[in-house]
Design a protein around this nucleic acid. Structure first.
Lengths: 243, 243
DNA sequence: CCAGAAGTTTGTGCCAGAGCAAATTTTTAT
DNA sequence: ATAAAAATTTGCTCTGGCACAAACTTCTGG
């Protein structure tokens, strides 16, 4: 049975939790202590939303552990995944870009541990803490770049290539070495993969089945292991049209 | 006949040029004078690049007049338009997001007038000028949102809807009231429109021809006038699938 | 251990829209 | 005025991959 996730302040979180993360890496122990003392920590179950599109942006977050999908929901109810956020990154930093509402929903792909601070501390962090702002904006820049790439991909590549590339990206970002390859380290369904690549779960299923028969991947329910990354790279780049 | 564009400093640019633009609107005349004196002004012909993807980000820019397309070129040589920038906005602000190279190419859609500053002044501007940084980041945020929307659109909508919506957006952003409707105020080809909507020029041509027959639009070469915006709005939202 | 839920696979039909070729119109250069 | 270049239109063909249905597999909670 799922536990009800609880919100509480954990006064004895260790400063080492943050001291290695880029936005905080230039700070001394005392500063990090202050930051942690002002934070709220919380655990979220997989499948729950940390914040939702359109809601007032009251807090900003640091993902300590887990994996978050940033999604948008269309008026027809379809979800599309804009990007993935791995642990160690800030999220919900609407204030950084002058927004007062969250522009998308942050949905936990796995169970996740998150620190958060009230948004009014944002300006304090930016002002007081050396290196915080540049790192926050760098994160933002990376995301802009990533979303840009998605546009280019969706616009120019075939479904097969997009799925292959998505798989490779997930592998690189979150892969964990296992016996016969590299496993994507969180549960992902055909449906999820289709939302990520702008196609249907049927098509994804057929592609994965095919690749599994050729030995490029192994997949159980919600789990995918890439056995032959190079073959996928080739698939992801080849224009299968004319050759 | 096209003139060769020349680069020069115009020492007598009026301070009013910048004083109404958001990044500078909180500054006094003396500050703006300083900013303008440090700037280089330049005119670009339509179809020329202000800066190119991958090149070192040596300057940042303010588009005073004209219209710029931010494009990416794929390894197969296809162009895709990531977004459009209207006059009055900053561009090439790679430094703001911690990049040392431009992440995309900025291509003038019309003849354009641009001010620019060496990138090392970025930090100075951010530090010294009240309101500059927040506005710059707001711009960035808007662009992130816009690109996000493009992903959602391309992923979920039919070609017809995408083209209709693109047309409406261009109309809103740059429309100029003319006799029988609202004209998109810069030259745009079927090819451009197809790069913007992730389809082919053939399909765009067919759609526009159809709409012209129905009286929704008027188009000459490189020019499009929207006569019946409401009908386009309807087209852009309707799922033409089942009804 | 069982029942229902959640996730996956596979077959079949079908069409939106890509791709190509070619004719036509508009613009620009000389 | 004329040629060449650029942009547009239109006809035709063909296919990637979507949609729906249905069976199957794997999990989960009680």
């Amino acid at each position: 049975m799922k536990h009800i996730s609880m919100r509480k302040t954990l006064p004895h979180l260790d400063t080492s939790l943050l001291s290695d993360l880029p936005p905080f890496s230039r700070l001394d122990r005392r500063q990090i202590r202050t930051i942690i003392d002002q934070s709220t920590s919380r655990r979220y179950d997989a499948g729950t939303a940390i914040f939702e599109e359109g809601h007032p942006a009251e807090r900003f977050y640091m993902l300590l552990d887990g994996y978050v999908r940033v999604i948008r929901i269309t008026y027809t109810g379809e979800q599309i995944t804009a990007l993935h956020i791995p642990s160690g990154q800030l999220l919900g930093i609407a204030k950084a870009i002058g927004l007062s509402n969250y522009p998308a929903t942050a949905m936990c792909a796995t169970e996740s541990i998150v620190l958060s601070w009230p948004m009014h501390l944002w300006d304090v962090f930016v002002r007081e803490y050396d290196g915080f702002a540049p790192e926050a904006y760098k994160t933002l820049g990376n995301r802009l770049g990533e979303v840009h790439n998605r546009v280019v991909e969706i616009a120019t590549q075939q479904v097969e290539q997009r799925v292959a590339n998505a798989l490779l990206r997930l592998m690189t970002q979150t892969g964990r070495k296992v016996e016969n390859g590299i496993e994507i380290d969180f549960p992902i369904t055909r449906q999820n993969l289709s939302e990520l690549t702008a196609t249907t779960l049927y098509t994804v299923s057929r592609l994965l089945s095919g690749w599994e028969k050729q030995g490029l991947i192994k997949s159980k329910r919600k789990r995918i292991t890439v056995c032959d990354p190079h073959a996928l790279v080739v698939l992801g780049q080849t224009q299968t049209r004319s050759d």
